[in-house]
């Protein structure tokens, strides 16, 4: 038999990434029903970061946005670096033990929002002129019209609209990993860092 494929991820992690990408995409539809002012499009990315580490989390984010770019809108593909940051930061925070309690998960959500703001703002300004066709554009417009610069309008908007979303996402993932049966989590070694 030929030598096996050089493996960056085990098959179990590959399957996890594949379903996590779908959770990210479908999560947005769940939000259509509950009508909360959040995106809910990175539960899968954060979950993979916690279960399988920052690299797997980053890959999940990257592929989610590339696939969304292909089937929904190229705008999503342009924000792929932001999705990578979400997965990587979630994985790093989990490794540092910041997913053990609910308040740690909430702080992790804030850290993820701050990190993604650093990457999202230049993309939003230089590729899209500050707007993307979402509801957040109203806030950018308002802040610009009251005298804020384009950079600060976009930075405040991106952080402000993401912080609630990422805190809720991190809390959902925290609640989830506590409730998951052992048979579903056995084999995800990275989860040991998030066990209380």
């Amino acid at each position: 038999m030929a030598s096996s494929t050089t493996r960056l991820f085990e098959t179990r992690v590959l399957s996890l990434i594949a379903v996590a990408i779908v959770i990210n995409i479908v999560g947005n539809q769940i939000n259509d029903l509950v009508r909360l002012p959040i995106f809910l499009d990175s539960i899968g990315t954060v979950l993979v970061g916690v279960l399988a580490g920052p690299l797997a989390g980053g890959v999940t984010g990257l592929l989610t946005n590339l696939i969304l770019g292909l089937i929904v809108s190229p705008v999503a593909a342009a924000f792929a670096p932001v999705a990578i940051v979400i997965g990587v930061v979630a994985g790093l925070m989990a490794r540092a033990g910041w997913f053990r309690t609910w308040w740690q998960a909430a702080v992790t959500g804030v850290v993820i929002a701050a990190a993604l703001t650093l990457v999202a703002v230049p993309i939003r300004i230089y590729m899209f002129g500050g707007v993307t066709g979402s509801g957040a554009d109203f806030i950018v417009g308002y802040l610009s019209s009251v005298g804020q610069t384009l950079f600060s309008s976009v930075a405040l908007t991106v952080f402000g609209t993401n912080v609630a979303d990422k805190v809720i996402t991190a809390l959902i993932v925290w609640a989830l990993v506590r409730q998951l049966p052992q048979r579903l989590t056995a084999g995800y070694g990275h989860l040991q860092y998030s066990r209380a």
């Binding site: 399957s15 379903v19 996590a20 029903l33 509950v34």
Partner: peptide, 25 residues
Amino acid sequence: DRLRALRLLTLPLVTLALADAQERS
């Protein structure tokens, strides 16, 4: 209500997805 609904909708979906991932692998 909506926050509670969010939990009621996402937890079963993600748990099912993880079971699915395990079966697929």
